[in-house]
Design a protein around this nucleic acid. Structure first.
Lengths: 170, 170
DNA sequence: TATTGTTATACTCTATAACTATA
DNA sequence: TATAGTTATAGAGTATAACAATA
């Protein structure tokens, strides 16, 4: 993989852009975790609530698939959310093995609060930006998203191919 | 807080921009966690290695402060990193209470691999972008970073003020 | 036989509080 | 008396495997 001299500066700029993206991700995570804490929620439990908001009452299996997480993990998350009054387990009308996870009134009110927080944060981040800048920023973001999806797909290919490579010092 | 009609569309655009940022953060997290796993590392342990790379051999107290994490937590992270051969505990030359966390040869080689991975990811994300787009994207990113820092600061103020507000349904 | 959810077990990350050894 | 690090304890998130009830 050849590299020309004038690419050195570009690489530096790219690394520092990646660092900025990572800093945004970190700050956003911390800030959201903090806001959620004030609602009595954690990021993972909120993820489940957010899925439930899209899907309506659902089985735990479906939640596990949608969240990309093990069924065992969903059991724990629902346990916590039920204990703190955000959701409840209902009988499935036709399958007696399954449970339907459903919002309580408090859960629904909380989801509306999450939506308000989301809107508020979006304004905090972007309302100071000029229209031109905002447009170009989101266009760049879209490109990054596409590249990222491609990078993830490549990694998954490598995984399948190199799954018997010796792991270092476990 | 009044809102004019034409602001509705802007708010939608802002929410969806925030969603894009959050998706980037999520994908980046997953992708990096996966790459780190192949090196025998976790994100938290890597954070410690990255601090150590900047600081050189350091006490656990200093690491705890730099990472914004409890000293107890650093004990566990160093335990794990030492057990897997990335760092070792050395006697502090003048303070017999303290230990100096230092890289092993394997740890140093791993940090160099991390640097290569970082560069590779930066290229994957940004090398397909036009110069104009890249410049404007990073400028927008910088603005977002400033807004985020301000938002976090505001939250921390509120915390100090409203620390005795009743928490909902713990 | 296959699926749904739980129990059993284990590991990582995180925190606070109590304790030991040293300053 | 204060600091550095550990042990004790606890809770969240994650996983796999075994198991019970049901399809």
């Amino acid at each position: 993989m050849m590299m020309y001299h004038h690419d050195m500066n570009r690489d530096q700029l790219r690394r520092s852009a990646l660092d900025q993206v990572l800093e945004v991700a970190l700050l956003l995570n911390d800030d959201m975790a903090h806001s959620l804490g004030q609602l009595g929620l954690t990021p993972s439990r909120t993820h489940l609530l957010w899925e439930l908001r899209s899907s309506g009452p659902t089985t735990q299996q479906a939640l596990a698939r949608a969240m990309g997480v093990s069924p065992r993990n969903v059991t724990g998350l629902v346990d916590g959310l039920a204990a703190t009054g955000f959701v409840s387990r209902q009988e499935h009308p036709t399958d007696r093995r399954a449970t339907l996870v459903t919002f309580t009134a408090h859960g629904e009110a909380t989801v509306r609060a999450l939506e308000r927080d989301h809107q508020h944060l979006a304004r905090q981040l972007f309302s100071g930006m000029s229209d031109d800048r905002f447009e170009c920023f989101t266009a760049g973001l879209q490109e990054v998203l596409v590249s990222l999806h491609r990078a993830v797909a490549e990694h998954e290919q490598q995984n399948a191919a190199v799954s018997k490579t010796p792991r270092p010092a476990t």
